[in-house]
Amino acid sequence: MSWFARLKSRLSKSSGKIHRGLVSFVTGGVLDEAGRQELEDTLIAADFGVTQAAALSLAVAKRHRGQDVSPETLTQSLRDVLTDTLSVHARPLVVPAVSGPAVFFLVGVNGNGKTTSAGKLAAYFQGLGVRVALVAADTFRAAAVDQLRVWAQRAGVPLYEGKDKQDPASLVYESYARAKAEGIQLMLVDTAGRLHTKQDLMESLGKMVRVMKKQDDTAPHEVILVLDATTGQAAHTQAKLFKDHAGITGLIVTKLDGTARGGVVVALSSDYALPVFMIGVGESLEDLQPFDPKEYAEALI
């Protein structure tokens, strides 16, 4: 089964709802204000947030002002509007051509799937023929290193780990030199989960980024915020503060295999100019896949 088919089947429960809903919005062939508000509510229920849901539903309504529309046309319109919004900042996650190893950081709050994503991402790039190393920079959470070690074995890539309670910034610094010596092309750094509201922890993340720049001032080449699809509107401050402190460059959305639709990423993408790089749709190693706005829109609606 292709990931798209899988995503579609996973989202089918919700997608059915949005699609069915669209039929009932159209009264007498015209999308009136009541219908538009229904549409807005449906999007809110998918975590788009009040502002984004209003903007998208208004954009759809504007396309069909005063015209007769069928539910099919409306469905297509909504998909188009959504695809357009997500495409503005879309770009694929690729390993840049740099002299030393490229460096990607995975950051985010606790429990959103950073370590799992790091493992899957390692397997993904390894599969593309890139020489990858994983860096276990989560020296805080109990057994986090053990967890990543298992993923490194599954993906067949080396794991760089520090001494117990070693400062993650110093580990990252050492790891870069090691990666360079060992001819690694991509260094994936799994950082400790931290709440964006914890000032000191956010500053220590900023320190890791600064230390990296001492080795290579273009590094880290990507700082990826891993976001749990079940997250609601608190994702806004998450994105803002991780951008402020660590300069995030894109998103990975995990746990899209549940019933959560992750609508908040649409607002995040446009508000903070962030591409969605990858999405997680399952538990196995290959269930992290590149994100395609059009396919996402089709699976969702």
Binding site: I44, V109, D228, A235
Partner: peptide
Amino acid sequence: MDAMTGQDALGV
């Protein structure tokens, strides 16, 4: 449950 959970909390 995570306090940051969105609309999905009800169904879950």
